[in-house]
Design a protein around this nucleic acid. Structure first.
Lengths: 137, 137
DNA sequence: CCGTATCCTGGTCGATACTG
DNA sequence: CAGTATCGACCAGGATACGG
């Protein structure tokens, strides 16, 4: 079982007892998930899509300073991981919209707990950061 | 107010109503927090420290394949943000231990919700990924 | 035992230009 | 409108060597 984050301390004890058990960092569930949704634009896009479906152009306009390349890539990666569903309407000109899948909504419920913590405590973190940097001299 | 992730849809409505309101991506609370704890080694280290304090060498041995440079840097950054407390015992040879602060424990409570989701659903994500990649042809 | 300093590489992201 | 293609800058992260 390749579960790096489950019971690491248990593995330490096992190792001290003489067993040889190795953590599998290649196949780590946490990295699989966090690696994508922790990206630069993913939280922003996910938050928007958690409210309602959006069209490509809407997302692009709503997220300032995002390049066309990055909005495309972010949406493709979220679709690839099964968080987002992409629907093409073959109108002229074409129209595409994006919405969360059930998996995406399920994930975002858990993610939003952390996101809310971030909102509530970002000032404390920034304060700690300033203090640390000034003490560095 | 520089709160990128709070009420973006509200800002859309405001913009559609003719107001000019810009998102501040430089000073974004989510990036401040996620940028650090979403790093490659931070989740692993935080998970370990959530169990009990650890000494530097223990952490190094517990996290396979981490370089001395990265364990040091990860711990310093977590300390800088106020999540981790570093205690030096001036013994000979010196000994240093690391433990979560109250802020760190508070953060990890929220983080662990997402971490647990990742454990439970990583297979679904990987399956979706494989499906997407094979369809790409 | 617990680090710091230096160099280097691979991947991420942005800018720009072009297409169905 | 909704993308793809290409190039280059930048930086997180790894290897290695040395210091308190």
């Amino acid at each position: 079982m390749a579960d790096t984050h489950a019971g690491i301390a248990g593995k330490l004890r096992a190792r001290q007892a003489g067993e040889v058990e190795t953590l599998d960092l290649e196949n780590c569930p946490v990295r699989t998930v966090i690696g994508q949704i922790g990206g630069k634009w993913s939280p922003l896009v996910l938050q928007l899509l958690s409210e309602r479906p959006y069209r490509f152009g809407e997302l692009r306009r709503l997220v300032p300073d995002i390049s066309q390349r990055m909005i495309t890539q972010t949406l493709r990666d979220l679709e690839r991981d099964g968080y987002v569903d992409r629907t093409v309407y073959p109108t002229k000109p074409p129209s595409v919209d994006y919405r969360l899948t059930d998996l995406g909504r399920s994930m975002f419920v858990s993610y939003s707990v952390l996101l809310e913590w971030a909102h509530a405590n970002a000032d404390a973190v920034k304060a700690s950061r300033r203090r640390f940097d000034s003490e560095a001299a």
